[in-house]
């Protein structure tokens, strides 16, 4: 409790939590993407099914999932607290504000992209986690996924969602390093470049898989 109170009442600790949980989620996305690639590698779906049943039974994965949920909740709660605090730091708004002139689009809309990502995530979790794992555990995961992506509306929303994910990640990656104080006049550019590549490749990878499934 003391630790949480300390974190909440200090601006920089909130920043660290944001960055650490963010980096954790960034890593998770890579793992998730690699898992999903099984859908493309083995079109019969056998490997993917094996993989998803492994996810269900492994204790290690369950613990990791637990941490993931916590990390995610931290990330979202922290963002909400920050949002409220930050809004209250400027009670009277500017009449004219040309924010676009001095900052990048992606950094200005982190909350909005964050909320949109969160909203779709509920659908995503309902579809695959809730339906797949909790209610109809006898349906094979592969079938569930194929069915979902064969629906063009779902696919469309999914792709839009990935664009928001791209925008969110684009700022998030380098930002997390900045928050943790990892800035170097030579190496920060490398981090920025990796961030740009990452933020493009990961959503693009998910998009590729979904379109691949739709077309096949």
């Amino acid at each position: 409790m003391k630790v949480i109170r300390f974190i909440i009442s200090h601006s920089l600790t909130k920043k660290y939590i944001m960055a650490l949980t963010g980096l954790f989620l960034i890593t998770f996305l890579v793992v998730h993407l690699i898992g999903n690639l099984l859908l493309v590698i083995d079109t019969t779906g056998a490997k993917f099914n094996e993989y998803s049943s492994e996810l269900k039974s492994s204790l290690f994965i369950q613990i990791t999932e637990f941490i993931l949920i916590f990390g995610f909740l931290f990330h979202v709660t922290d963002a909400a607290i920050l949002y409220i605090k930050n809004k209250s730091a400027r009670p009277v708004k500017y009449h004219v504000l040309k924010q676009g002139e001095n900052i990048k689009l992606s950094s200005n809309f982190m909350y909005i992209t964050g909320i949109l990502i969160l909203l779709f995530l509920f659908l995503h979790l309902y579809q695959f986690l809730f339906l797949g794992r909790i209610l109809k555990s006898e349906i094979l995961m592969h079938e569930l996924v194929i069915n979902a992506f064969k629906n063009p509306i779902y696919l469309f929303i999914y792709l839009i969602w990935l664009i928001f994910l791209f925008l969110h990640l684009k700022h998030a990656f380098q930002s997390a390093f900045q928050s943790l104080g990892l800035y170097h006049k030579k190496y920060t550019n490398i981090i920025k470049n990796i961030g740009s590549i990452y933020s493009f490749i990961v959503p693009a990878g998910f998009a590729f898989i979904s379109i691949y499934l739709y077309l096949n």
């Binding site: 200090h10 909130k14 920043k15 920050l82 930050n86 730091a89 900052i103 950094s107 982190m110």
Partner: peptide, 18 residues
């Protein structure tokens, strides 16, 4: 210094670099 900054109702940094 940071704690004093927090006490004076400034907002938090969200790395927009404006």
């Amino acid at each position: 210094m940071v704690d004093e900054m927090d006490r004076n109702s400034f907002g938090n940094c969200t790395n927009t670099y404006a």
